[in-house]
Design a protein around this nucleic acid. Structure first.
Lengths: 198, 198
DNA sequence: ATGTACATGTAATCGGTTACATGATTGC
DNA sequence: GCAATCATGTAACCGATTACATGTACAT
């Protein structure tokens, strides 16, 4: 059982496996296209991490031979993996640091020409709406016919719903801010921005 | 004038300089403690980036000799730097990827014991409230006596207000979600979570 | 024929973090 | 006397991204 340093992705992969086994390909997809809305990683990184986790005995991996498709490996979390997740969940987590290129452009709107920045805002609106649609679909999958109150009283799998709600609220908030920015910048531009009259 | 690759911090530092010169120390502080709420970096990284930017001719740096303190360097953006920011603002920016350790713990709440996760939520509430207080102070500094409508019609420096508002809204949303989680998890625990009755 | 989905990686590089170093001054 | 603030870095490391590689099957 090899040793592992304190890698960030490790716990995210373990968390993605708590509700049953999955193939590397499935996990890679989930982590790339944000269906796993609680973390993000490229496929190569996921495959590498799975290999390391298996060497460390934190996941089991079994080969599945397929006829009309390439073979695949199915992974599931071990007791050691669960123990590690437990330890992780009990340790304090820092505030995530925000890094968003669009915010840099917005910060500089006074000197870079508002037109470029507003174009960036519009692109962001599109992307956020796509993401939001995907998350709402996921929410529907989770809830099924049930309303929230019923779901919460009856489910065994609350975690995915909580993180999904976080993703939805985050994107909704981002969209509201984008629309607010459009309005404010329009007003600002109509009043001699660079040369306010005395 | 040395060449620079496409580093992420570069544009953020340039954006932080658009409203006048600043010392490396001032910039390092702003980037570390999130007063620059649109980006984040450690002091060492900021100093290194400033050196590179000066070699590339994107910022000017002048030495200021001080008596009762160590000497410092004051940096200001050049025309080349402004041109680079302009180009950056016109290029498309991707959706920022979310990576938050607390979300990983929440995702796994079904297996790791809700107590640890709720403790993490409480710590997050504290941190978010501190950050929120700092951002609201910054907002007051920006607005002064003016209300938003008046400010927008008269200011030349809209950018910092827009990003500050984003930071405030983000933290407010995070706090609301945390409180919602507390309530939902309490309900969930009161109804035989692991063994729902038939 | 052409492209998308399945399925899994290696190698090089980059951007960010951690650890460590230095030394004076101001306030408790 | 002791900690915090001012002021600036170097070196080593780690985690994430980018570019590249391989081959089958199914749908248009």
């Amino acid at each position: 059982m090899a040793r592992l340093r304190d890698m960030a992705l490790r716990h995210a992969v373990l968390a993605a496996l708590v509700h049953g086994e999955a193939s590397g390909y499935e996990l890679a997809k989930r982590f790339e296209l944000g269906v796993a809305n609680f973390w993000h990683a490229k496929p190569q990184q996921v495959y590498a991490e799975l290999t390391r986790l298996r060497e460390a005995g934190l996941v089991d991996g079994r080969e599945v031979i397929q006829e009309s498709r390439p073979n695949k490996r199915m992974f599931s979390i071990t007791d050691d993996g669960l123990a590690m997740l437990d330890e992780f969940a009990a340790s304090p987590t820092p505030l995530p640091v925000g890094r968003d290129d669009l915010m840099v452009a917005v910060q500089a709107i006074d000197v870079v020409g508002a037109r470029s920045v507003l174009a960036g805002i519009d692109r962001r609106v599109d992307l956020a709406e796509q993401k939001l649609a995907a998350l709402r679909e996921l929410e529907q999958q989770i809830l099924g016919e049930r309303d929230e109150a019923t779901f919460v009283r009856t489910t065994r799998h609350l975690g995915p719903y909580l993180t999904c709600r976080r993703g939805i609220r985050f994107q909704e908030e981002a969209l509201e801010w984008c629309h607010w920015v459009r309005g404010v910048v329009d007003t600002w531009q109509q009043h001699g921005r660079a040369v306010p009259r005395p």
